[in-house]
């Protein structure tokens, strides 16, 4: 209703502009200016609210992290102090020194990056080609297979971990290339969601784009690779991030698949970390320091991925 009202308010003076006298026009201008001022005030209030919300959320997000950092700077290996310290007592970097000198930390990170990177690349490839077919081509069973894909995710994989183990054994990956096998499992686990996510984005891109490109002489593959994919960058970035992070600190399956060598340098970081734990005790200082260090690469990945989250660039340009 209010939409109609403002429309009439707005349009009337514009359409009759030629015949309005100066007084009417001034009244109209005052009204518009008032609205702009009001809107500015509202916008100011709005952004204050947004800042408040972001601050509250940041505190919520970082509150536990703060205690991880505190534990990492603590001298002894207790997680907790039974006193409330808001600043660490006797901070030291010993735990970080230990993490870098006594643990094969870089090897762990390298392995983890390999597993996550490989599963991301492969998963992205499988899901974007699949998503393109499901978005652009019409064939029988298309809707059904889309839904069946989602249904597959309902299987409780945690109860069938040994099945994944025997699968890799059967594929001869268990001994020869366990990290590769692991990344295949992660990739398969996230490919469905990734496909849905990308397909949803493809659907918002007009199919005329593809047709125009093909009329210009591009092959089907070139159209997909050179025209459609670049436009879908935000969705690809989001999906890549989801696959990457989903594999980053997975423990249960990795623990079954990977066998440590002498110093554990062939493990992913989370397995390496958990190995520091004894039957009862957890060396919290080392634990926390390693956790802080291994979180850094992911934050860097986030910052990098942000390049793709710039609003309103792509489609506006295309449609115009």
């Amino acid at each position: 209703m209010s939409k109609n009202m403002t429309q009439t308010q707005f349009k009337q003076p514009v359409s009759n502009q030629a015949s309005t006298d100066a007084h009417e026009y001034a009244k109209y201008r005052a009204r518009i200016e008032g609205r702009i001022r009001r809107r500015k005030a509202v916008a100011g209030f709005q952004s204050a609210l947004i800042y408040l919300f972001l601050t509250v959320m940041t505190i919520f997000a970082l509150f536990p992290i703060y205690f991880v950092i505190q534990a990492s700077l603590g001298g002894n290996q207790n997680l907790y102090s039974t006193d409330l310290h808001l600043l660490p007592a006797n901070p030291s970097l010993d735990n970080y020194v230990y993490a870098f000198t006594q643990e094969p930390l870089l090897a762990w990170l390298g392995n983890t990056l390999f597993v996550c990177g490989f599963s991301t690349l492969l998963g992205l490839f499988c899901s974007m080609t699949g998503a393109y077919a499901l978005s652009r081509f019409r064939f029988r069973g298309r809707k059904l297979s889309l839904n069946l894909l989602l249904v597959l995710q309902a299987f409780p994989a945690l109860l069938a971990i040994s099945a994944y183990y025997y699968l890799l054994q059967y594929l001869n990956l268990l001994d020869s290339a366990p990290l590769l096998g692991l990344s295949l499992i992660y990739m398969a686990g996230s490919v469905v969601f990734s496909c849905w996510n990308i397909k949803g984005y493809f659907d918002t891109l007009p199919v005329e784009l593809d047709q125009a490109a093909m009329i210009d002489g591009a092959t089907q593959w070139q159209t997909f690779w050179r025209v459609v994919l670049p436009l879908a960058a935000p969705a690809l970035a989001a999906s890549a991030l989801l696959i990457f992070v989903g594999s980053w600190s997975e423990f249960a399956i990795a623990n079954y698949i990977l066998n440590a060598n002498d110093n554990g340098s062939n493990l992913t970081f989370i397995l390496g970390l958990v190995r520091l734990q004894g039957d009862f005790r957890t060396p919290w200082g080392y634990f926390a320091a390693t956790a802080v260090i291994t979180s850094v690469p992911l934050v860097v990945v986030f910052l990098f991925a942000q390049r793709f989250f710039k609003s309103g660039l792509t489609i506006g340009g295309v449609k115009g």
Binding site: A43, S47, L54, V68, A288, S295, L298, F302
Partner: peptide
Amino acid sequence: QKIKGLPFWRAALLVPWATPYAITSLI
């Protein structure tokens, strides 16, 4: 886009995701 310091806010709000849950759960 009117919010200042977007890269900071974005990174800060995604941090829970970057830290391994095996550790943050215990925290």
